[in-house]
Computed example of a mutant assay.
Amino acid sequence: MAEKKLTSSQMAALLVLMAEAREISNPELGQLYSFTLTGKDRNKLNDLKLVDSRKGRQGAFFHVLSEDGWAYAREVFSKGMEASERPAGKVLEATLRAIVANLRRYMDRTDQNVNDVFAREEDLAPASPTTAAPEAAASETPAPESAAPVPNGTAEPSGTGTPAVLADDIETRIRKAYAQLAEKPNAWVSLTQLRPVLGDTPREDVDSTLRRMISMPDVRIAPFENRKALSQEDHDAAVIIGGQAKHLVLIGA
Score class of each variant (00 low, 15 high):
S25F: 03
E23H: 02
D123C: 06
G80M: 03
S34C: 08
F77I: 00
G242E: 07
F62M: 15
Q244M: 13
E122P: 05
V219P: 01
P163V: 02
F61E: 09
N226W: 06
S231W: 04
R57M: 14
R22Q: 07
P196I: 00
I241S: 06
Y33G: 06
T130E: 15
A238F: 05
G69T: 01
M216I: 02
A177P: 01
V117T: 02
A222M: 03
A119E: 05
L166D: 01
R105C: 03
P196V: 02
Q112T: 13
A148T: 11
P223R: 00
L230N: 01
E121A: 14
A229F: 06
A237C: 10
T38S: 14
G243M: 02
P27M: 11
M18T: 08
L6W: 04
I174N: 04
I240A: 00
L210W: 09
E75G: 09
Q112V: 11
K4T: 10
A88N: 07
D41F: 07
A71M: 15
P157S: 11
L230A: 07
L230F: 04
T131H: 12
D52R: 10
K79I: 03
F61Y: 11
N115D: 08
M18C: 13
R104G: 00
M216V: 08
P129Y: 09
E183W: 05
L194N: 01
